[in-house]
Design a protein around this nucleic acid. Structure first.
Lengths: 212, 212
DNA sequence: CGGTGATTTGAATACGTTCAAAACTCGTGG
DNA sequence: CCACGAGTTTTGAACGTATTCAAATCACCG
């Protein structure tokens, strides 16, 4: 049975909040609800308005690798050529705007500004992917967790205070670790006085001097 | 001292061999010669005409992660926004065409076909990156090596016969392993009768039924 | 044919995983 | 308001895969 997003199509918004000639449809996705599946025809591209979206691939035996988390303002599904190469779903409740691909292409051929914006977003996604590749291939468990927190702090943190919307399993599947290892790294950082956990989902960094 | 590529600027070629309104300069790079460095202003984008190019990031302590190998026909440096996010250099001797970014952008705004081509190439690069992320984060050493060989076979192989232009260290730095582990996996595959090594750089796959 | 860099192989080690169980959190209903 | 319960997180101990260090062998270029 396919779940239809609540309030689907109730509002229209401009891409990046500035391309008013290109309107998208807003949908509200429930926790764990799928936005698109790997291999489906790539009909649209998306912008996160609220909440968090995860993008991942699965192996046949169930192993999962999360390629990226997307937050407010991020564009995803941009890696489209013909078909989506990942599955995307909502981490918690998420508000997402969708833009039909053909309309985006048409609008981009009319507007140099939009074309540049799309280019920059695609470049940003590739940048992130390459940082992620470095992290996955060459960093230790501690470095991975540190890097993750630094990234989260940069993107959503306020003065070193980070709210983690995802579970330890999500973080582990993003970092190529197990949830136990993620938990141990966080505990160790706390023991070393480098952070403070208030509940499992609230982190306060001691040294905000963490860079990607 | 900066080495200048041999025969720099001796010829001009069209991007993808089909956009004749956009001409690039051909340079021949010597083995290990740098094409661009991480952090440099992204002035141009490149197409491999001959040979192999590797794209990588380094950590301060010298650990290296190769993000991609590029072969004939591949476009790289496309992840540019302002500055290159990786370093690119020649694996062996490589012939590379460079195209100034401003000219590409200008030409793309005139030609829908070129714009689509660039879009498709960017999407392809992101696709590759996401497959690589899955491989690095969730596959075992054996699966990584198998996946690498399958990929190489698909891109450069002729009926299961693969020529490896790069060293075991390059492969290891691509797969997030050590060169010893790569060597052991290849030996084990040979012992299991799944491939045949003629010298270290020539591989014959038994079952070409390997998919990415 | 010699020499240098690349590759293979071996043995000990270490890091992260696996399996197991306890502790914690948070939403729900009594 | 507190108790309950399911899901999440933490912690512990044993294990396994890939790494590290070391040495031998191979292959290619001059």
């Amino acid at each position: 049975m396919i779940t239809i997003p609540k309030n689907s199509g109730t509002k229209a918004v401009a891409l990046f909040g500035r391309h008013h000639d290109l309107l998208g449809v807003v949908s509200i996705y429930q926790p764990d609800q799928e936005i698109y599946g790997e291999g489906e025809p790539a009909k649209a591209l998306f912008e996160v308005l609220r909440g968090v979206v995860r993008k991942y691939k699965l192996l046949e035996d169930g192993r999962r690798q999360i390629a990226a988390f997307h937050f407010k303002g991020d564009v995803f599904g941009l890696e489209l050529d013909e078909r989506y190469s990942t599955t995307a779903d909502a981490v918690g409740t998420a508000h997402v705007a969708s833009f039909r691909r053909d309309k985006v292409v048409a609008a981009a051929s009319q507007s140099l500004e939009l074309a540049r914006d799309l280019w920059a977003r695609a470049a940003l996604n590739l940048d992130h992917a390459q940082c992620h590749i470095l992290l996955l291939g060459r960093k230790t468990a501690m470095e991975k967790v540190e890097g993750f927190l630094a990234d989260m702090n940069q993107r959503t943190g306020r003065a070193g205070r980070i709210n983690l919307p995802m579970t330890r399993l999500d973080i582990a599947d993003f970092l190529g670790l197990t949830l136990e290892t993620v938990s141990r790294c966080l505990s160790r950082m706390q023991d070393d006085g480098r952070l403070c956990l208030s509940g499992a989902r609230k982190v306060a960094l001691r040294q905000s001097t963490m860079v990607c």
